[in-house]
Nucleic acid binder design. Structure first.
Lengths: 122, 122
DNA sequence: ACTAGTGTACTATATACATATAACACTAGT
DNA sequence: ACTAGTGTTATATGTATATAGTACACTAGT
């Protein structure tokens, strides 16, 4: 795992875990690695993982049983709304960013299509 | 100007100035506000503006004449490549982000089109 | 009861960022 | 020469982030 040093590591790990949930790599209700295990796995300080899980719990994504472990929420709805929220953010960033650079709506569609064609070829 | 506290202010101001150049609000070769004026305008510390201009100069976007002021590059090519770079970044973030959430290429086009229709109506 | 594996909490240190404040150096216009 | 307006440099302070290290509290299995 390589981190972008312009964004706090705990934020990046939060996104990583959210994506793992969305993609089904982490199942609903499943126990995740302990803070210490995750810290070792991601080569990060245990305290950073504590922060990650505190924030995720605050958002209702995970819950913890003291002395037992940390678990993914059981709520399918929560995961769905999380996915939708993350997608909305990405779409918004794209459109707003392109508008701010002076691109028109038609440019956006063209650029995306053009880029996707390239990707498919690869 | 409202700043997003998850990103360093000097980075946000750099983007702001780059956008102003791209949109022609700041002309090639033009003298920009002094660090002190910009600081007052954006309600930011003068040292933060010093950092902004140091970084922009390092990127070849601006140049300074000591005791005189700070100026936008004369190079049209520089501005063009900067715009292209910023657009590429935005497009890349969009595609990578959506792929990581499990969306297909066709989903992306649909979502963008759908969102753009909404925007136009507004 | 004991123990291993959890989460929790705390202190200390280092770095980046942003601010506040002040002083210095250069340039252009008077 | 002087002065106002530049950029430049420096010290100090506060906050957020990340790390290192330690200790405590709870739970489940033995």
């Amino acid at each position: 795992m390589i981190f972008d040093n312009t964004v706090p590591i705990y934020i990046q790990i939060m996104k990583l875990i959210k994506k793992d949930i969305i993609l089904g790599k982490l199942e609903l209700g499943a126990k995740v690695l302990s803070t210490r295990e995750y810290a070792q796995e991601l080569k990060v300080n245990p305290n950073t993982m504590v922060r990650v899980f505190n924030e995720l719990e605050r958002e209702g994504i995970t819950f913890t049983k003291r002395g037992v472990g940390t678990f993914i929420t059981e709520s399918k709805e929560k995961v769905e709304s999380m996915k939708k929220e993350m997608a909305e953010d990405i779409i918004r960033n794209f459109i707003d960013g392109m508008l701010e650079l002076g691109f028109e709506f038609s440019d956006m569609i063209d650029l995306i299509k053009h880029r996707l064609e390239k990707e498919v070829v690869q």
